[in-house]
């Protein structure tokens, strides 16, 4: 130890301890930290520990530490802990309308909302009605493109600071949805359509209409072929990702990208 007397945990500033324990994730915050000692127990209940709530940490198949039937009660109790301070929430795969409604009523300060990647997930059906509760929303990640136009309408009406939209996992972005992006979110800065299915016309509209884009990711997307014309249209975007990172040669063979998509995950991250 640096000091002879030795430090006392109680002397550590509470904000510092909060900062440390929030790095450990939800599971530690629930079943380790509270039982270390009384002061750590109190820290684990501090709303500032629950500003970021990542329900996606809970994996299917590891249901031993929570039960399907009590899932709603569990989600509610966690959301309650933030006492309205939660700014980032990653929704669980089990997300229901009920959970979403509860979140909307309790966490008006939300800035970032992540839906799980799931084509069948239908909790986003109710989303258009709830968007108006989150005036500070800046980021939305959708797991599919269900109801997308209505959701974007809500965003354009209520969320003045909105700047990032991510749509994940082979979502099909139809003509109306593609047109809605530049029409309803002309000021969007970050758009992630990786692996989505979007037509060339739709992509062109986005490139023409969203002049403030600094990041556009359409890697592994299908529905269009990349050419100089598209690249030129996107030349205002400082981070325009349209090829696979490592295999630039794939240009012109976009149709094949789909086949490689499974291997892409690790390859492009290194």
């Amino acid at each position: 130890m640096l000091l002879k007397a030795g430090p006392k945990w109680e002397d550590l500033n509470k904000d510092c301890l909060v900062n440390v324990v929030t790095r450990l994730g939800m599971k530690s915050l629930l079943i380790v930290i509270p039982f270390v000692c009384k002061s750590w127990y109190r820290v684990s209940l501090d709303p500032s520990c629950w500003q970021t709530i990542n329900f996606q940490e809970i994996k299917y198949g590891h249901q031993s530490w929570y039960h399907f039937s009590s899932a709603y009660a569990f989600f509610k109790s966690i959301i309650k802990r933030s006492q309205g301070n939660a700014t980032t929430v990653m929704l669980p795969t089990l997300c229901t309308e009920e959970v979403l409604r509860y979140l909307a009523s309790k966490c008006p300060a939300l800035k970032a909302l992540y839906f799980p990647s799931a084509i069948w997930d239908n909790s986003s059906f109710v989303l258009p009605k709830l968007i108006c509760k989150w005036k500070n929303l800046e980021l939305l990640k959708l797991g599919n493109s269900i109801n997308m136009v209505k959701i974007l309408e809500g965003i354009s009406l209520h969320c003045k600071n909105f700047c990032q939209l991510d749509i994940d996992s082979t979502a099909y972005i139809g003509r109306r949805a593609a047109a809605a992006i530049p029409t309803l979110l002309p000021n969007i800065k970050y758009l992630n359509l990786r692996r989505a299915n979007i037509s060339r016309t739709g992509l062109k509209r986005i490139l023409r209409g969203c002049k403030k884009l600094v990041h556009l990711d359409v890697r592994d997307s299908v529905g269009f072929e990349c050419d100089d014309k598209l690249l030129k249209l996107g030349s205002h975007i400082s981070n325009f990702q349209i090829f696979k990172d490592d295999d630039a040669y794939i240009v012109g063979f976009i149709g094949e990208v789909e086949i490689y998509a499974g291997f892409e995950e690790n390859a492009s991250e290194t």
């Binding site: 945990w9 440390v20 790095r23 530690s28 380790v32 270390v36 000692c37 009384k38």
Partner: peptide
């Protein structure tokens, strides 16, 4: 500091940091 207590049990954390459980 977080690295030290990541994925550790209550008993480990107590012992490692010399914290006495006061419950």
């Amino acid at each position: 500091l977080a690295d030290h207590i990541q994925n550790k049990s209550v008993e480990y954390v107590r012992k490692f940091f010399g914290i006495k459980g006061d419950f």
